[in-house]
């Protein structure tokens, strides 16, 4: 579908953990077309901030025309969003990017759904759509958020850097500790985590999909700011740079050259 810009109404906002917010937004069209793994661009009201903030879609309610984002306050833009209350309006553009392959998680397969930090939210909507057996592994630095919301969709494992809950260490430490195995991996999180997951998937011959992040400007593939190194020559510029916003954010692990 064509991307659209909408002045959308904030339906609700709550704080989930220190600096982590959950906002439901009423959209006219975006919710109808959005897919798990896609993202939206949010525009600040403060005109001194020019660039939209790309934020992944955490949940989609097509019937009610709602989308949910869960984001961390990292600077002035997200700080502004965190102050919005029900009834406020926000300009958003979407749906953007390609989303996860639902077919890759067909019935009969066993999947790892891995989220690290603020890469966890998009894995929630994905978990609802995959027909396969889901083993959900969530990695946190310290405070936990969204964990309970995953439990209806699969067995959930947690890793924390400080060991305050679950496995002390990262998501792959949790995989080892619990002796887990899978046929397919879906992951979103910080780059070092994705790099480690790609290596793990290759070592074990597992199909693997990674959702990447990079600083963006236009969000639609025109400005070439948010490229990632790709193993193949990309379609756009015929070099080795795929656009995270348009060719991704979800890539097959082999496509990405860390």
């Amino acid at each position: 579908m064509a991307k659209v810009m909408e002045l959308a109404r904030v339906a609700s906002q709550v704080i989930l953990a220190d600096g982590v917010y959950s906002m439901w937004i009423e959209t006219k069209k975006i919710a109808l077309e959005a897919l798990p793994g896609q993202f939206i661009s949010l525009y600040t009201k403060d005109n001194s901030k020019l660039l939209p903030r790309p934020i992944s879609i955490c949940e989609i309610d097509r019937e009610k025309g709602l989308i949910r984002i869960v984001y961390r306050v990292l600077g002035g833009g997200t700080e502004e969003f965190s102050c919005y209350k029900e009834g406020d309006y926000i300009e958003i553009l979407g749906p953007l990017g390609n989303g996860f392959s639902i077919e890759a998680g067909a019935a009969g397969k066993r999947a790892f759904i891995i989220g690290g930090g603020i890469g966890i939210p998009p894995m929630l909507e994905l978990s609802k759509h995959l027909a396969c057996e889901k083993q959900i592994i969530l990695g946190y630095r310290d405070s936990i958020f969204l964990k309970e919301e995953f439990s209806p969709y699969g067995v959930t494992y947690v890793a924390t850097e400080d060991g305050s809950e679950g496995t002390k260490g990262n998501v792959l430490d949790a995989v080892k500790e619990h002796g887990l195995s899978a046929d397919v991996i879906f992951a979103c999180g910080p780059t070092p985590m994705l790099k480690a997951i790609k290596a793990y998937a290759k070592e074990n011959g597992i199909e693997c999909y990674l959702s990447m992040e990079e600083r963006m400007a236009c969000g639609i593939g025109a400005c070439l700011a948010c490229v990632c190194k790709s193993s193949e020559v990309d379609d756009h510029s015929k070099v080795h740079n795929k656009r995270v916003c348009k060719d991704g954010p979800v890539f097959q692990a082999e496509e990405v050259d860390f």
Partner: peptide
């Protein structure tokens, strides 16, 4: 041209910096 390494942009007050490096096919 492959262009420059990332990050290629940064927001500034009322503006932005870019160093895409003329990536083009």
């Amino acid at each position: 041209w492959p262009g420059n390494p990332t990050p290629r942009i940064a927001e500034t007050h009322g503006g932005m910096l870019n160093a895409i490096g003329l990536q083009n096919p």
